Lab assay of single mutants.
Amino acid sequence: KRYRAVYDYSAADEDEVSFQDGDTIVNVQQIDDGWMYGTVERTGDTGMLPANYVEAI
């Protein structure tokens, strides 16, 4: 699945990823209600991200 960031996010922990509004997130997997795991296409960084900061595309 592919998602697009709708807000900027700065990683708060080493297992999270930072991204900017408009970034595409690929290979996304749902972890639980609030978190997903995926790769930021622009940077190649992979990690956890907050589900409410992205939307499906």
Rank of each mutant, 00 (worst) to 15 (best):
V28D: 01
D45I: 11
W35M: 07
E14D: 13
V40T: 00
E16C: 09
R42H: 06
E16F: 08
Y37S: 07
D8L: 06
T43V: 02
P50R: 11
Q30W: 15
P50K: 08
V54P: 01
Y9P: 01
A51M: 09
I25P: 00
V26C: 09
F19S: 01
N52Y: 09
R4K: 11
T46R: 12
Q30D: 09
G38L: 03
D23N: 03
D23M: 01
D45L: 13
P50A: 04
A5K: 03
V6E: 05
D33H: 11
D45C: 14
E14W: 10
L49W: 04
Y3K: 01
T39H: 04
M48T: 07
R4V: 12
I57V: 10
G44L: 05
G44R: 06
G47C: 02
L49E: 01
M36C: 08
F19H: 01
E55V: 15
D45W: 07
F19A: 01
I25Q: 00
M48Q: 06
E55A: 10
L49G: 01
V26S: 08
Q29C: 14
V6Q: 09
N27K: 08
G38I: 03
A56G: 08
D8V: 06
D15R: 14
L49R: 01
T24D: 07
T24R: 07
D13V: 10
M48W: 15
L49K: 01
P50M: 08
G38D: 00
N27P: 03
G38P: 01
A51H: 06
I31D: 04
A56C: 10
E41F: 07
N52I: 12
D8I: 07
K1Q: 13
D13C: 14
Y37D: 03
Q30H: 13
V26E: 05
E41N: 04
V26G: 06
V54L: 11
T46S: 12
W35Q: 04
M36N: 04
P50W: 07
E16P: 00
Y53D: 01
V28F: 04
N27T: 05
A12E: 11
D45Y: 08
A56M: 13
S18N: 06
D13H: 15
Y53Q: 05
V26Q: 06
P50G: 03
T24C: 12
V26P: 00
I25L: 10
D8E: 10
T39G: 02
V6N: 09
T24P: 04
